[in-house]
Design a protein around this nucleic acid. Structure first.
Lengths: 203, 203
DNA sequence: GTCTATAACTCGATAGAC
DNA sequence: GTCTATCGAGTTATAGAC
């Protein structure tokens, strides 16, 4: 399944740590698990990364960076509204399909450290959705789309992109579908979500 | 904030355990925390519930039962489609507002035990959204609403109801709003979600 | 039923040989 | 750099007095 031959020890550790942390969370993961998964010894983990906490930080930051700034890039582009909605939903779902366990992992860990996290991630920058919100309000006032609350619309968009992955087991249970069927549905969502949103605001 | 005077010891333990488990998760919670929160001794926890695992199970089951079967009731009623959408989104959001940390807690723990959980929750019953899916398809074929994929529509609905609570810190960060503003937005969502869905499928 | 004291165990971390 | 062995802190769980 994986090619561990030409990986350095550090890479093996990072790959293993990601796998274990994402699945079990910071408190649930054990250094022994990580060592076993990496095919090395526990002591080596401490040799490369001083402590469990430090190792976790590396993994978490990479995951969070992947999940957040992507939003920024797309939402601050100069595309027309409908194009932007299409691009965001498509690209975001596509990205999450590749790492489906990331959102739950990140959201869960943020929840345990909400304050410290916020500052690290954005500092004092203007929040990333600001530009999109303005764009929606502008079109709304010009009468080009229905009158809607921009924040609520943005929440809807984020919800439909991210929730299916966070709630995957719940959805599979409630709808009685297997992994393959789920995967296919997510592929379809890449384009469906934008159509759905636009249908709801188009005049 | 709470009335602990006329609670039995068992009730105190359950309330404390819920609070601590929901906040820290199974692996992050400590029996000492729970005992302190309940204002009793650690040994008593074992007297009432044999082990940490058993105590956790009680809390988790109650939480999961709260989150899931509610869906069942509403979705299997005999209401017309639009009414059902209104009722489901309203009631569900209202319920989650009262226990906003529950969804993340439950989803997170399910993810760590996906297989064992499914059987316990529904057994071999027909999955709960079946009837709603049929209803959507029927209306869709009759041409009363736009042609849509029923499962995708249901996922959208669930996403918009549940995700905001799971992703609360993310939303607050990205939109730069405080707890009060967030709460107000959720209150509005109780009616907004249904309007949004219906606008997207109405002909 | 409730408490104190402590046993039994898990796990992160370090020492030290190679 | 990598391993084995082990320490020590912190946690669950139990024994036993009241």
């Amino acid at each position: 399944m994986v090619k561990k031959k030409d990986q350095t020890t550090e890479e093996k550790i990072l790959a293993a740590a990601k796998q274990v942390f994402v699945k079990k969370g910071m408190t649930g993961a054990r250094m022994q698990d990580i060592a076993d998964t990496a095919g090395i010894n526990k002591a080596l983990l401490h040799y490369y990364f001083r402590s469990k906490e430090k190792l976790f930080e590396v993994i978490f930051k990479e995951a969070a960076t992947r999940l957040f700034p992507k939003i920024n890039e797309i939402l601050n582009s100069d595309l027309p509204l409908f194009d932007k909605i299409h691009q965001f939903t498509h690209d975001y779902v596509e990205m999450v399909i590749e790492t489906p366990y990331l959102p739950l992992f990140v959201l869960n860990e943020i929840n345990k450290q909400p304050h410290e996290f916020g500052k690290k991630m954005f500092g004092k920058n203007r929040p990333p959705v600001h530009k999109l919100a303005e764009q929606i309000e502008k079109e709304s006032k010009k009468g080009l789309i229905k009158s809607v609350s921009a924040p609520q619309l943005i929440i809807n968009m984020m919800s439909m992109c991210i929730f299916p992955f966070v709630g995957k087991p719940m959805i599979q249970l409630v709808m009685n579908i297997d992994d393959l069927q789920f995967r296919e549905m997510m592929e379809q969502r890449k384009k469906l979500i934008a159509d759905f949103i636009i249908a709801s605001i188009k005049k």
